[in-house]
Structures are given as C-alpha cells and as structure tokens.
Simulated scan of single mutants.
Amino acid sequence: MTDPRLAIVIPAHDEAANLPGLVADIRAIAEDFDAEVIVVNDGSGDTTAEVLNGLAAGWDRLRVVTHEASKGQSAALRSGIRAARAPVIATLDGDGQNPPENLRGMVARFIEAPEGVGMVQGERVKRKDTLSKRLASRFANAIRGFLLRDGCKDSGCALRVFWRQAYLDLPWFKHLHRFMPALMRRDGWDIISYPVSHAPREWGQSHYNNWQRGLAGIPDLIGVSWLIWRAPVTQGIVRPWWTGADDKP
C-alpha cells in the first residue's frame, strides 16, 4: 500500500479470542481512511501470535509487531506508534471493549479541529464494566483531575486520535498511556474530549485489578505533576493545583 494517512495501533496480550472480530470490525474503517493497522502482540502466552499471523496473511493493511516478553500496555503502544508510517495515530484496546466504529467520528473531529489541537480523547459513556471497576475509575479520574487539572474526565479510555510526532515528543515512562492528555497539554497542545460507546468484554479477563491500577498510578501521578510543574512556561499550559499560575520552573 502507499504511505497511509492514518495508523490504527492496537496493543494485545492474550487476546486470541477477541482479535478476529475486532480486526473484522476495523477493516472497513481502515479501507475508508486509507489506514494501516498495527497490532502489537505483547508477549502473549495464548495463540495470539498464530491468530495474528493468519489475519495478516489475508489482509495487506495489517502489520504485526511482536514483543517476545510482555512489556505492558504503554510499551506495546510505543512500539506500534514507532513502527507506524502515518502522521496521525488512532488507538484502541485489543479486548473488544472499544467499538471501532467510534473511530469514524473521532478521526473526522480530529481532521476538522483547529490548529493547535493535538489529540481527540475518547470519553466512555454507559460503561459496561463491573460496578467496582467503574467506581474505582471514577475515583481515580477525580483524583487525577484534581491534581493535574488536565480537563479530561476519562484519561483511561484507550480510544484516541493524535499526532504521531506529538506523542513521540512526550517523556517516556512505563505507564505513559494513562497520562497522555495531561502531558499533551504540558507541551502546549489542546485536547478535545469525544463521547464514545463501550462494550462488555466477551472473552478473556482484564489484565489489571483495581488494586494494581491504584498502586501503579500513585508514583506516576506524582511524577507527572512534577513534570508539568517543571515545564517551560507556555501559553495554554495549566499548572497542577499545588503551584501558582505564575510559577517559573
């Protein structure tokens, strides 16, 4: 295929049962937007590799990137984004809970956005998770929003459309994907929230529990707050709550 305008990047770990249906749903969208699709097999222990190889053999827009051992979601996203040739990236999870049809509206919104918009961030409505997961997510987003003041109500939603180079300019750390809106704003980009649908997981199980998410998020939240505080003063940057608007690094 010619150089694509859009790359759809999907991290996947032990998602063999979900990937055939997900890729089938993405196919028409990728054709319409002249997009490449990159699935990163993040050290899966099931038959994800075999499933992806079979899907790629039948569709030349699908590329597979492989991690021999699991490195986590942020690392998988980074590998896929670095492998992409397109200037615009769209992402979603490989578990089937992010209906790909949402990407049509998100990409269109990104294309028509004014200069200075770096990302369209999905915001899940009517989530299909368990009550405990929804409550934990709501609490985590409230704390994160209070500390970072990034204006994003659902930074955990994997549905995003953004400039590839804007992402590559972000500081890299293991759980970067949870803080992309705040760090994009740190670099002076505007973020647009976009309501998206959410589906229940049909196969497999989540790779994180609420306790693991909470423990992983605490040091990252502190670190991201520090990064925002120490950023050069740029128009449009919102400082964390604990610093004054006129603070100089």
Score class of each variant (00 low, 15 high):
210 N>L: 00
180 M>L: 15
28 A>K: 11
185 R>F: 10
200 P>F: 00
73 Q>V: 12
129 D>M: 12
161 V>N: 12
3 D>L: 13
188 G>K: 02
4 P>V: 11
234 T>F: 09
79 S>H: 12
4 P>E: 03
102 N>E: 08
198 H>T: 00
80 G>E: 12
134 R>T: 06
79 S>D: 15
185 R>V: 02
90 A>S: 07
68 E>A: 12
55 L>Y: 10
132 S>H: 05
192 I>L: 14
236 G>P: 11
15 E>Q: 15
34 D>Y: 01
197 S>P: 01
55 L>H: 14
162 F>G: 03
185 R>G: 14
165 Q>C: 05
126 K>M: 13
89 I>L: 04
156 G>Y: 14
95 D>S: 08
99 P>Y: 05
216 A>K: 07
6 L>P: 08
214 G>Q: 06
186 R>P: 06
248 K>W: 10
185 R>I: 05
227 L>Y: 08
97 Q>D: 08
39 V>N: 02
29 I>R: 03
172 W>M: 15
195 P>V: 00
210 N>I: 03
171 P>F: 12
177 H>N: 13
183 L>P: 09
160 R>K: 15
23 V>P: 11
148 L>F: 09
11 P>L: 03
145 G>C: 06
133 K>L: 11
131 L>E: 15
220 D>L: 02
171 P>E: 01
172 W>H: 15
188 G>N: 00
71 K>Q: 12
44 S>H: 07
231 A>V: 00
75 A>M: 14
204 G>Y: 02
1 M>E: 07
157 C>L: 06
151 G>C: 10
89 I>T: 04
175 H>G: 09
206 S>G: 08
151 G>A: 09
142 A>S: 12
13 H>R: 13
26 I>Y: 03
53 N>D: 15
3 D>E: 13
21 G>I: 00
36 E>W: 12
209 N>E: 05
165 Q>N: 15
115 E>V: 12
132 S>V: 05
21 G>D: 14
17 A>S: 10
114 P>N: 12
88 V>Q: 00
248 K>Y: 10
109 R>Y: 00
56 A>V: 10
72 G>A: 02
5 R>I: 11
95 D>V: 02
183 L>M: 14
8 I>K: 02
105 G>T: 02
49 A>S: 14
133 K>Q: 11
39 V>Y: 05
44 S>V: 04
113 A>P: 10
15 E>N: 07
36 E>Y: 08
128 K>T: 13
246 D>T: 11
237 I>M: 13
135 L>V: 14
104 R>S: 01
28 A>T: 14
130 T>R: 11
13 H>N: 04
15 E>K: 07
159 L>I: 06
126 K>D: 13
240 P>C: 03
233 V>P: 01
17 A>Y: 04
142 A>C: 03
121 Q>R: 06
145 G>Y: 08
240 P>I: 04
